Computed example of a mutant assay.
Amino acid sequence: MSVGAALEQLLRLIYRRAMKLAMLPEDERDSHYDHIRLSCCAAAEHIGQDPDRAAITANDMVEFVRALVGIIEMGSAPDHEPSADQRPPVPHLGDQGTDTTRI
């Protein structure tokens, strides 16, 4: 597996985990964050990071996931409206006569 493919797969995994965490009540998330921290720390040590650096890497990963959960929550808020600096969706070039947008 190439580095790019591995990174893409990892980012999809992180996104799916963040989506699941965003559905949980805040008070139920800490144990999941702890699990992410332990798993990431073990993986970092496995690839050769010293324990101190592995702990920093794991904490950074947890903070990244927490931030992603926050972004997901903000985007799914019922009163969420696009800000003035957001551009409207651009229709796909193949769409003729429809107002749907493909992502």
Rank of each mutant, 00 (worst) to 15 (best):
F64P: 00
A67W: 04
Q86M: 12
P82N: 12
P89M: 10
T100A: 09
H92C: 08
N59V: 02
D30G: 02
A58H: 09
D79P: 01
R53C: 10
A84Q: 11
D95Q: 11
I14T: 11
L21D: 05
C41V: 01
L38A: 15
R37G: 00
I72C: 04
D95L: 07
G48P: 03
L10P: 01
G4E: 09
L68N: 14
A42P: 05
Y15D: 12
M61N: 07
C41I: 03
Y33E: 04
D79E: 15
E26D: 15
Q96W: 15
I14N: 01
S83M: 14
L68E: 12
A67I: 05
G48V: 02
E81P: 00
S31H: 11
P51K: 13
M23D: 09
P78Q: 09
I72D: 11
V3P: 05
S39C: 07
T101E: 02
A84R: 15
D34A: 12
P88D: 13
V90Y: 05
L21G: 00
I72E: 12
T101P: 00
D95C: 12
Q49R: 09
D27T: 14
Q9K: 02
D27W: 05
C41L: 14
R53D: 12
R29T: 05
L38K: 08
G4N: 07
M19F: 05
P25H: 08
D60M: 09
D85W: 14
C40A: 13
R12M: 09
H32R: 12
N59A: 05
R53L: 12
P89N: 07
A6K: 10
A58E: 06
R87G: 14
P89Y: 14
I72K: 13
I72N: 03
T101Y: 15
I71Y: 01
T57D: 06
V62C: 08
G70N: 08
R12V: 09
M61L: 03
Q86D: 07
N59Y: 03
Y15F: 07
S39V: 11
D52F: 10
H35D: 07
A54I: 11
I56V: 06
Q86G: 04
Q49H: 13
V3Q: 14
R17L: 02
A18S: 10
D60S: 03
K20C: 07
D99T: 01
P51A: 13
T101C: 04
H92Q: 09
M23R: 11
E26M: 05
L10G: 03
L68D: 04
A22V: 00
M23W: 01
M23A: 08
H80W: 02
R16W: 06
D85F: 12
F64V: 04
D85H: 10
R17I: 01
D79L: 01
